[in-house]
Design a protein around this nucleic acid. Sequence first.
DNA 1: GCGGAACATGAATCCGCTG
DNA 2: CCAGCGGATTCATGTTCCG
Lengths: 379, 379
Amino acid sequence: MGILKRIDTKQQPATKARPKLSLLPLDTILMDDCVAAMAKLPDRSIDLIFADPPYNLQLGGDLFRPEGGRVDAVDDDWDKFDTFEAYDRFTRAWLREARRVLKDDGTLWVIGSYHNIFRVGAALQDEGFWILNDIIWRKANPMPNFKGTRFTNAHETMIWCSKSEKARYTFNYRAMKGLNDDLQMRSDWSLPICSGGERLKDDDGHKAHPTQKPEALLYRVLLASTEPGDIVLDPFFGTGTTGAVARRLRRRWIGIEREPKYVKVASERIASTLPLDESAMAGVPEKKSAPRVAFGILIETGLLQPGTILTDAKRRWKAEVRADGTLVADGAAGSIHKLGATLQNAPSCNGWTFWHVEQAGKLLPIDTLRQRHLAATGE
Amino acid sequence: MGILKRIDTKQQPATKARPKLSLLPLDTILMDDCVAAMAKLPDRSIDLIFADPPYNLQLGGDLFRPEGGRVDAVDDDWDKFDTFEAYDRFTRAWLREARRVLKDDGTLWVIGSYHNIFRVGAALQDEGFWILNDIIWRKANPMPNFKGTRFTNAHETMIWCSKSEKARYTFNYRAMKGLNDDLQMRSDWSLPICSGGERLKDDDGHKAHPTQKPEALLYRVLLASTEPGDIVLDPFFGTGTTGAVARRLRRRWIGIEREPKYVKVASERIASTLPLDESAMAGVPEKKSAPRVAFGILIETGLLQPGTILTDAKRRWKAEVRADGTLVADGAAGSIHKLGATLQNAPSCNGWTFWHVEQAGKLLPIDTLRQRHLAATGE
DNA sequence: GCGGAACATGAATCCGCTG
DNA sequence: CCAGCGGATTCATGTTCCG
């Protein structure tokens, strides 16, 4: 069978929690096809698998931004499959090996988009995995839909599953609650995409990998579903985000990656990542900002009816609410902010405080309705 | 085959937008199995389908049992496999009928949770549907996970798809943007669950249906992907949320529901729902429906003189207007769009917003002149 | 050095009609 | 079916550059 190529990175001190197999190529990148590499690992030896497989995006020609720039799309060969059937075969092959090497109480995470995640989800159910949650990564700053043809594709989906319904998997409930201001962690996570200094660049200054995931995502995944010292396998290692976060959180890791250039980037990255101090392992609190409420919600939820007349505080202007959440007055129309600015001939306007609605004989700023919505939904 | 039982509710005034078939049982609930009822509808007759199929996979309801179920006791794995297979058969059966009755440019929405949505998504791709978006309904106030064993299941997933990649589906981009404070509507929608007065109760005061969807959800779905007068089919009608919102937004609807008690609740509910006033229905016009104005008209009508010099906003390029409505600059010539693209070395250019004319010492985009022309001709 | 404008960019199934 | 062409279309961040 030949010897696996290994890239060794600095060994980290293990925090003991579960018995480990000494045969595993720990804290190492295996440069190989993921199915072939997994086939060489022993049965039931891995605590957690995080998989970021190709999405099979099926993109067409070039896409241009309104200002003329060209979108740098994922056009790599590794994302191309001839048919759904071919993609399904690939998926089942790596899922089977993943299932074999996973401990009976271990869990598997897979991330994907609508292009592939439904196929992956159905396949893993067919292979006997038991879905625990589907988690939505809500991107704080996604790429817009430049042509206005669909809803902005602003999220990705992760599936978290165990090997069976009865498995006693790891879920660090308290740690998750602590990360979320002492509220239960929900199935939707709002996190920024990977950019700025975290985004790895190659020698030319271009992004080293087209789909690098943010460390914050892996941080939450590993903190939720592993203990220190657990063994984490990533069969589509890429730039090694999983390995870097595992090392930082004092988990052991194994990465599998076929492309030599990604292996190089990942091993350098992980070597320069330091494990957290034991004292800091308690977790880092995250700041939470108030959710933005669009005016349209008030109409959709019935707090305000289409056709209602709004006025400013001194009743100098009035406007009618339409079904799509815009206002119309004297032929002018627009959002609550834009119309307020237009009527006052001002550069901008806070529509929430400018516009009022008459209720019980009194003029209420529509911001009051927003507060009511927030209160009703407990946010 | 017998005659379909129909429950007629009050007819709503139709706002004409697309040609309709008089044979369809419009604004009616068909009390029948959804596949059997759809089988009686003509091909390509429906503009939009909203489907909220059952997903009680592990409850082993009769619905999903394969014909002539096993006699021998089976172990859990086999039973689960059978259940998934049976669920897939059921899914493909209703998806095929849905596909047949849908117009070629119509679209389908399906809502589900992690129990069933991956199977449904894979099945609809297999049947040839083309996914446009997956939409996350982020529940503002979900039920907590009482045992603390998983993440709070705080969302449901909707898949929006067309019949083919090339279909010219309806997407009211402007209306969606209007609902969202003039920002593109994203694929994650934060809306409260259906509760309080909206939640229908039976005579005992218990909730009439276990999975009643909020009207706000359907409001956004219908506003996004249908026009007034369009025909909306809901093959799993339940308490008729789809019908109630369709009536309110002046869409036509057909509901299919097997359970007599739900049919009763839904028909009463819809009868007491009133359509919105026409004036509130007039939303932001979609730009693409505005009449086209050729640049040459501005010259013919005297709004612009041949020989006038146009520049871009930063005065980097200039061009001269010729009598035939073309521009010329540095030997290059062409339409306002083509010349703009040529000069910038860009793949395309909107000449209306790129070119400016100096009037009263200020640079005005020539689009302003087009607006002036449209206003003068009363369009 | 600082503030603001300008520029760059992210897993994207991204136009529609006419001839 | 394809080519041509009119003209519609972007949000949140982070970095660079200029005054």
